[in-house]
Design a protein around this nucleic acid. Structure first.
Lengths: 133, 133
DNA sequence: CTGTATCCCGCAAGATACTG
DNA sequence: CAGTATCTTGCGGGATACAG
C-alpha cells in the first residue's frame, strides 16, 4: 500500500489489499469448480463422462471449460491415453490436495446453513409487514 | 438423463449431493461479499462510506446490493441512527463471526497462489509451442 | 468417448446521475 | 451521508448440434 504519510490522499485501498483472501476465492470457487474439485478429491480419478454423470446437470461445454481452467491453475491433472477408444482421466494434483483443510472447514460450516435460512425468513417477514401499510 | 436400467435408481446425483460444500460457497463467496465480510470481521464496524473507501472500487449500487444480501442472510447487522445527518453502521453478526476459522484457512492457503501462477505459466507455454508449428 | 462449435440468456456488476 | 434509479455490459452458464 503506497506508503506516504499516514492515510494520505490516494488512500483508496485496492480490493486485493482490502481482502487478502479474495484471490483464493477467485481461483478455487465458482459454481462448478467446487463440485469438480470435491468429487476428484473425495472419490478419486474420474473420466469425463463419469464426472458429468456424478455432478449431474453440467453440460459438456461448461465441464470442459472448468476442467481446462483447473488444469491450467495446476489444481488437477489430465492424462490422455491414446487407446481405441481414447480415454482421459482427471485427478486432483498435489496442489489441489492442499485444499483439503479448506474443504473440511467449508463442510464443517455447513451446519450453519439452517441459521441462514432462518435469518432469511425473519428478514423477509419484516419486509412483508413493512410493505403492507 | 433419467435412464432405465442399471443406472436408474439413484442415478443422476443432484449438484448439492455431489458436493456438500457448494451451498456454503454460494452463501458466503461472491466477488464482493468476501471483501465486505473480511473488512467487517477484521477491522470492526463500518459506515457505508467507510466501507466504500476501504474496499476501494465498489460502486454504491453494488455495495448496497451485497450489504442487503448479507443482512438478509444474517451474516451482518445494520443499525440505523436517526440523527442529523443520519448514520448507519454495519457490523459482523455472531453468525458471520463463525466464519473466522474458514477465513483463517483461506488466508493460510493463499501462500499457494504463487504455485498457481507458476502452473499457469507452464500451461500457457505449452499451449504456445503447440500452436507454433 | 471426449470433447467443439454456435447461439442465446440471465444476472452480477460498472457508469452515471440523482434524492431524502 | 446513505443510499436509488437507469442504462449498459461482460461473462458464466444452458441448449443443441456435431466432430475426431
Amino acid at each position: 500500500m503506497t506508503s506516504n504519510t499516514v492515510w494520505d490522499a490516494q488512500d483508496a485501498v485496492a480490493p486485493e489489499n482490502a481482502c487478502p483472501i479474495a484471490p483464493v476465492v477467485e481461483v478455487v470457487f465458482s459454481r462448478w469448480t467446487t463440485p469438480i474439485l470435491w468429487v476428484l478429491h473425495q472419490y478419486g480419478p474420474h473420466r469425463f463422462v463419469e464426472l458429468q454423470r456424478r455432478i449431474g446437470t453440467i453440460t459438456p461445454k461448461v465441464l470442459t471449460e472448468r476442467l481446462r481452467q483447473l488444469e491450467r491453475d495446476g489444481l488437477i491433472e489430465r492424462t490422455y491415453f491414446a487407446e481405441v477408444p481414447p480415454r482421459v482421466v482427471y485427478e486432483i494434483s498435489d496442489l489441489g490436495r492442499s485444499l483439503a483443510p479448506l474443504f473440511a472447514a467449508l463442510a464443517e460450516w455447513s451446519v450453519n446453513l439452517g441459521e441462514v435460512d432462518q435469518a432469511r425468513g425473519i428478514y423477509d417477514a419484516k419486509q412483508q409487514t413493512r410493505h403492507r401499510r
